[in-house]
Design a protein around this nucleic acid. Structure first.
Lengths: 154, 154
DNA sequence: CCTGAACAGTTGACAACGTGAACCTTTCAT
DNA sequence: ATGAAAGGTTCACGTTGTCAACTGTTCAGG
């Protein structure tokens, strides 16, 4: 962790930290709800939408999807099954390794995912309360928080 | 009606907004994962932990729990059932309205919830990347976002 | 070359979540 | 008093998620 001699190394009961955590929890709940709603509006579940969002950068092995979403590979099987029957993704063989199956978004799937992402951008009521300068500030803070954490994610 | 650098009243394709939304999505995923983990460490599911957290401010009718969590009342029945069999909550009659059942956290339940909340405060790696001034800045931004949104929550 | 360990994905059984409809009890307006 | 409306529960159903067992593939040693 951090070995700062000057700063409080134990923010255990830090007042501000506690409040930020609570605010975060509320914001997380709010975002989560909106995300599920937006997905449902396109007859997708939250998990399906997440997988589809991952595939925006290209095909991906099942296992990697599982790792990125921090769940068991067997769980991904079912989700991809359902996405596949609806024509949102396909399973392609990996030519380098025949054990691997590459999941790729179809035209329809990519479209739905992009549409959903687009719908989030201005459906976010909370962000409307901030002007562009504040948004920039927020962006910088979030960036710093995320680059120092468990990893850049995707 | 195009990209006005001064003030964008239509942040439809605003670059910063889009990035903030993406960062938020990552942060939300991260928080969600940590929350589930922290709950699991106390043999609670995420949903159970959320209900238990709601009861910190006192007993609450089933219906109000459902409304706060934005789900169907029938769903809460099951969650409270499981919490009750483990001794984390009790169902009490409401003396004013005999239709209502007030769910109250037991000593054990309140303890587990407080413990979980406490464990989140310093387990949040992301926050460690910010100094106290930045945290204050973040707190203010989050406050503004939340007070303008769907409501203060509780 | 063969054998066995390790890996990718699937299957099956199981628990929790979440919805929607039907139902019972209680409240409340008329 | 009667009927509508509200609070909870129950049931049936689908989706997520875990874990253990299984098939097929890859790869390292012998």
């Amino acid at each position: 962790m951090d070995t700062q001699p000057t700063r409080a190394t134990a923010p255990q009961t830090d007042e501000i930290t506690r409040e930020v955590v609570d605010l975060m929890a509320n914001l997380v709940a709010l975002f989560h709800r909106e995300y599920e709603e937006a997905a449902a509006a396109r007859s997708l579940t939250g998990a399906q939408a997440k997988v589809l969002a991952l595939l925006r950068r290209g095909p991906m092995p099942m296992r990697q999807i599982a790792q990125t979403l921090s769940c068991e590979p067997s769980n991904i099987t079912g989700i991809v099954d359902r996405l596949e029957t609806r024509g949102f993704v396909t399973r392609q063989p990996d030519l380098q390794d025949r054990r691997v199956k590459l999941v790729a978004a179809t035209e329809t799937g990519a479209g739905a995912s992009e549409e959903l992402r687009e719908s989030l951008n201005f459906a976010r009521e909370p962000l409307a309360a901030l002007d562009s300068e504040e948004r920039t500030q927020l962006r910088d803070l979030l960036r710093r928080m995320l680059t120092g954490a468990t990893g850049p994610g995707a």
